[in-house]
Computed example of a mutant assay.
Amino acid sequence: MVNYTIIADPKVKDDLKVARDFLNSRRKGFGKKFLSEYRITLKHLQKNPDFQIRYNDIHCLPMKSFKYMIHFRIDEPNKSILIYAVLSNYLNPDRYWIK
């Protein structure tokens, strides 16, 4: 089994910070739990990136405990995963999803 290399767009760092800050504002420590779950989800993604295609050729992987999805594209020839966004399921997709 091949592990894929994960490459995140620089904007993903901002997505994670916004999510962490929002979740911490709701309940202390939730932001830390979110980031921990994100890292665990990436480990699963490296081993098996074949998740549902939601639009164009962008795959989406929902996080287990938080209402967020990782939006990514698979570069099969290079065995890499290009992460474009980590977005809340509550956001308006017409405004935030990649087109």
Rank of each mutant, 00 (worst) to 15 (best):
Y84C: 04
F72I: 06
S25R: 04
Y90D: 15
Q46D: 00
S88E: 15
N48T: 05
R95F: 15
K28L: 01
L87K: 10
I53G: 05
G29P: 04
T41S: 08
P49E: 06
A85S: 15
R26E: 12
D14G: 05
T41N: 01
L82T: 00
I74D: 02
D21P: 04
N3Y: 09
N48M: 04
K47C: 02
P49I: 10
L87Q: 10
Y96W: 15
P49N: 08
D9H: 15
K11V: 14
I70W: 07
H44G: 09
D15E: 03
K28E: 12
N48R: 02
V2N: 08
F66G: 08
L23W: 02
I58F: 15
I58S: 06
Y68W: 14
I70C: 02
P77Y: 03
S88W: 15
D14P: 00
I83S: 08
N78A: 12
Y4D: 11
Q46F: 02
M63H: 07
K33V: 03
N48Q: 09
I53V: 15
I53S: 11
R95G: 02
C60I: 13
K79M: 06
Y68M: 12
E76K: 14
K64Q: 13
H59C: 14
N24A: 03
K64N: 13
P77M: 03
L82R: 09
V86M: 04
V18C: 00
P49C: 06
I70M: 05
M1C: 03
C60E: 12
G29D: 01
R20C: 13
Y4S: 11
F72M: 10
N92D: 15
W97G: 00
K32F: 07
R26S: 06
D9P: 10
S25V: 01
V86T: 15
K13F: 13
K11L: 13
N24M: 03
T41C: 05
K79G: 00
P62H: 04
D21G: 01
F66D: 10
L23R: 03
L87G: 11
K17R: 07
M69D: 12
F22V: 12
Q46W: 02
Y90N: 14
K17C: 00
L87R: 07
N78M: 09
F66P: 06
P93F: 12
I74Y: 01
K13C: 11
Y96Q: 06
F72W: 09
D9M: 05
D94L: 10
I70H: 03
N24Q: 06
